[in-house]
Design a protein around this nucleic acid. Structure first.
Length: 430
RNA sequence: GGGGAGUUUCCCGAGCGGUCAAAGGGGUCAGACUGUAAAUCUGAUGGAUUAUUCCUUCGCAGGUUCGAAUCCUGCACUCCCCA
């Protein structure tokens, strides 16, 4: 395996800016080097936007180095102004603690199974609150602040752009870069970690750390930023009309996660394959060729969705997502238990009915469609049925007078209604 | 202050005494096609019931008529022109 991380990053389009690449290569030519990326705990889960950095750390591990994930327990209290147009709201200590716990679990999950070629990689997860907490304000100003020229701080994009806006920024957010700079120096002391990677919006913070390392320790630190993932329509990767795509299955089900990647357009899928998956460059070229020859097969999207769903949700998550995909795209729903149904249809609205409504003649399909909100009125429900748009457990029902009875149940007490191609609702009977 | 035009169903916009739940377009919802894309085509689109039919809707309130979205009166709002 070619262990030249820098060339690999370049080939995959992962480098936006970096410090001198020959020095970087030189430093990384010895195995076991430590490379870090930071994650601020702004929510109790990471989202797709964090995936690039996480995958970068996995690549670091693959190249024979040791990834270090830094959780910003301290910096998260302040809020990073980079890439932000408005002042952040401060998190309460409780929220922050919960966020740290959630984020840490996800990071460990992704880094510990980094060995899909068999080996468990050595990695570190650190929290900057651990070394920041004990540092007093005066001490910090003397030891760190004294070595950072104001002109340099004011020159950063994150500060400049905010000062030009109406809202400006607070002294608190202004100071953020000092904390991150100090993190870098601290990690170089404690772990001999000399490379920091991050999104392109982190360049200012990273160089602040490099500068501080030079002044304080006369030490050469290195930095790499990768381009922010954007879609070809200009929007941010991982953002949808209904919100962000999260890594936590409770926020975004494995099915929706999987679907997000399946639905990318061809160019985006190609770019994501290169940047987010461990596929070799040969495999990438191969998929590029297939995509050009037969775009309808959607090989790239499938492979991408598969790789990333397995990475984030594991094999069971991938299996669930696939099963859900089959069902959402027409497969008749056979024998599934209520638990499986609940999992597959996690994102679907549901409605409870008394179990007794299935007795005797049963429940009018028209009524079930309106009660679950799939149809606006009984007339609309009738119309949908007449036009062939109504399904029970994915079986088309075209009889307006159809009544649901116990034999229509998919699980023990669950039944799946659908209107048209995509609108589902779950009816639960109790 | 004077003169004129207007207010229609989710939106735009026809209708100017019965044949009006109201043309047409957009949107939306189904169906076909398709790459879970885009475009295109077909159907539907106030509510209840489908056999018929009933109820509610055309700025608001009254009135004239067997019958009004359409005529009259008053009120509210919007726009334009002249001072």
């Amino acid at each position: 395996m070619p262990h030249d991380l820098v060339s690999d990053f370049q080939a995959r389009g992962l480098i936006h800016q970096s410090t001198d690449s020959s020095q970087l290569r030189e430093w990384l030519s010895t195995p076991g080097r430590r490379v870090y990326a930071g994650f601020d705990p702004t929510a109790d889960s990471l989202h797709v936007g964090h995936l690039v950095a996480l995958v970068l750390l996995r690549r670091v591990a693959h190249a024979g180095h040791e990834p270090v994930a830094l959780i910003g327990g301290a910096t998260g209290m302040i809020g990073d102004p980079s890439g932000r147009s408005e002042e952040r709201n401060l998190l309460s200590p409780d929220e922050l603690a919960a966020n740290i716990a959630g984020v840490e679990r996800q990071i460990r999950g992704i880094l510990s199974n980094a060995g899909n070629d068999g080996h468990v990689t050595r990695h570190h997860v650190v929290n900057n609150a651990d070394w920041m907490r004990g540092v007093g304000y005066l001490e910090f100003l003397r030891d760190v602040g004294k070595h950072v020229p104001l002109s340099q701080m004011l020159g950063k994009d994150s500060v400049k752009s905010r000062l030009e806006r109406d809202g400006g920024l607070s002294y608190t957010e202004f100071s953020y870069m000092l904390l991150q700079a100090w993190d870098f120096v601290h990690l170089s002391d404690a772990l001999d970690c000399r490379v920091q990677i991050g999104g392109s919006d982190q360049w200012g913070n990273i160089t602040a750390g490099i500068e501080l390392g030079r002044r304080l320790r006369s030490r050469e630190l290195h930095g790499i930023t990768c381009p922010l993932l954007t879609k070809s329509d200009g929007t941010k990767m991982g953002k949808t009309a209904s919100g962000a795509i999260w890594l936590d299955p409770r926020r975004t089900s494995p099915y929706r996660f999987y679907q997000y990647w399946i639905n990318l357009d061809d160019d985006d899928a190609g770019r994501c394959l290169a940047r987010l998956t461990p596929l070799s460059l040969e495999e990438l070229t191969d998929l590029d060729a297939k995509r050009a020859a037969n775009p309808a097969a959607r090989d790239s999207q499938k492979r991408l969705a598969e790789e990333l769903t397995r990475l984030v949700h594991g094999d069971t998550g991938l299996a669930a997502a696939r099963q859900a995909t089959d069902i959402f795209f027409g497969a008749e729903i056979g024998q599934l238990d209520d638990g499986q149904l609940a999992e597959i249809f996690a994102d679907v609205p549901s409605r409870e009915f008394p179990l007794s409504s299935l007795d005797g003649d049963g429940l009018q399909l028209v009524e079930a469609l309106t009660d679950t909100g799939l149809a606006q009125s009984r007339g609309a429900a009738r119309r949908t049925i007449e036009q062939g748009g109504a399904y029970v457990n994915n079986r088309r029902i075209s009889d307006v007078a159809y009544r649901l009875t116990a034999k229509d149940l998919a699980g023990a007490a669950t039944l799946v209604l659908r209107s048209g191609k995509k609108s589902y609702a779950i009816a639960r009977f109790q």
